[in-house]
């Protein structure tokens, strides 16, 4: 399941994947894979990403149940 909320928030802040990766303390590949839905981050990494994107876990990682079922 692609994480478009995270990608849009990053673009909204005019931040590259490399810059977000640097702020969250991970590699660019990891950010790319989270956005592409190919990697499920730990809660610790989710918090670091949210801090870097100046938002909450709900803003980026929460999915409504109906939405979740549709995407699956």
């Amino acid at each position: 399941m692609r994480n478009l909320k995270m990608k849009f928030r990053r673009i909204e802040l005019e931040m590259s994947q490399t810059e977000l990766a640097r702020r969250a303390g991970v590699t660019r590949q990891t950010i790319g894979m989270i956005e592409a839905g190919e990697f499920n981050p730990s809660i610790k990494l989710c918090v670091a990403i949210c801090r870097a994107l100046e938002c909450t876990l709900n803003d980026i990682f929460w999915e409504e149940k109906d939405n979740e079922a549709e995407k699956e």
């Binding site: 005019e14 590259s16 994947q17 490399t18 590699t27 660019r28 590949q29 790319g32």
Partner: peptide, 13 residues
């Protein structure tokens, strides 16, 4: 190579 910013990600900014 893996750390290179993908093209679509750079263009979107």
């Amino acid at each position: 190579k893996l750390e290179e910013e993908p093209k679509d990600s750079a263009e979107e900014q």
